[in-house]
């Protein structure tokens, strides 16, 4: 598995798109910090970008890589190596190379600016962790889609749809249902519904840091105990971990059953 991972990573990290992605974050980091000169504002803008962009890039990269590497994957399948190792290796190779671009691309400008000495270091660290989580989750989801769809165009379409659904549509439906049923007690529903969307979960993790004052304004006891203690952080993080493990498990299962 490590061998596959190593070469996939080596291949991807040298690709033009990795450079573009890395360059984008570098530029974004420098522009945000040195044009604004306000670290906490930069972190809020960055959150908006990360929560939407890392899933999208993860999805697109994951699906493109797997479709374009199909023939090479066949070659690997004929080698004396376990199937699950091939796919795990490739998956981790993609996800790691993307996460690498994210961390390096944002890390450099923020270190240059001096985030390490500031109070915002934890917020920033959390942002990177969340970005990495989202990358791993969405690469896994898109790999699953590519494994289940022989047809590239279809697979690509589904993957984008999944991203669009989780990034925008889900929240829209969520909001509409909350407003429509606001005569009922909703806090349980609210918390449960956020667990089913990794993007919402990641956002909540960051809200816990940036907007705790507003979150604690809500009356419900469940909200209070969720946001007011470490519970929210622990539950969100572990659910996010589940979100990254389950698609990988699914991926291995699908890969094992599939014909190539």
């Amino acid at each position: 598995m490590f061998k596959i991972l190593k070469y996939t990573f080596a291949d991807l990290i040298r690709s033009r798109w990795s450079y573009v992605y890395l360059g984008f974050y570098l530029l974004l980091g420098f522009v945000l910090l040195f044009l604004n000169n306000d670290l906490s504002k930069a972190i809020i803008t960055l959150m908006n970008v990360i929560v939407v962009l890392t899933p999208m890039i993860g999805t697109i990269f994951g699906i493109m890589y797997f479709y374009s590497a199909r023939e090479f994957t066949e070659l690997l399948l004929a080698q004396p190596i376990k199937r699950s190792h091939i796919f795990l290796g490739q998956y981790l190779g993609i996800a790691l190379s993307l996460a690498f671009s994210l961390v390096i691309g944002l890390g450099i400008p923020f270190l240059v600016y001096g985030v390490a000495q500031s109070a915002e270091i934890w917020d920033f660290g959390l942002l990177l962790v969340v970005g990495a989580f989202l990358t791993f989750i969405f690469v896994a989801l898109s790999v699953n889609i590519s494994l289940r769809n022989e047809n590239k165009v279809k697979g690509f379409g589904y993957a984008i749809l999944v991203w669009l659904f989780l990034a925008v549509i889900y929240d829209g439906l969520f909001l509409v249902s909350l407003v429509m049923f606001d005569d009922y007690p909703l806090d349980k529903f609210t918390l449960v519904a956020s667990m089913f969307n990794p993007i919402d979960l990641s956002r909540i993790l960051i809200l816990l840091k940036l907007d705790i004052s507003a979150l604690l304004g809500y009356t419900g006891a469940l909200f209070q105990s969720f946001f007011g203690s470490g519970l929210g952080m622990i539950v969100s993080l572990s659910t996010l971990l589940l979100w990254s493990l389950i698609p990988v498990g699914l991926l291995i299962r699908t890969a094992r059953k599939r014909d190539f």
Binding site: K3, A10, A78, P80
Partner: peptide, 30 residues
């Protein structure tokens, strides 16, 4: 599969590896 060599129909490899790296990779895997 240690005892089988396979030449696939379509030859497509990772774009950003060199030929030598690819050879090393397959040797490494086997």
């Amino acid at each position: 599969r240690n005892d089988i060599g396979y030449l696939p129909q379509i030859a497509r490899f990772p774009d950003n590896l060199t030929v030598q790296e690819l050879i090393n990779m397959i040797k490494n895997i086997r």
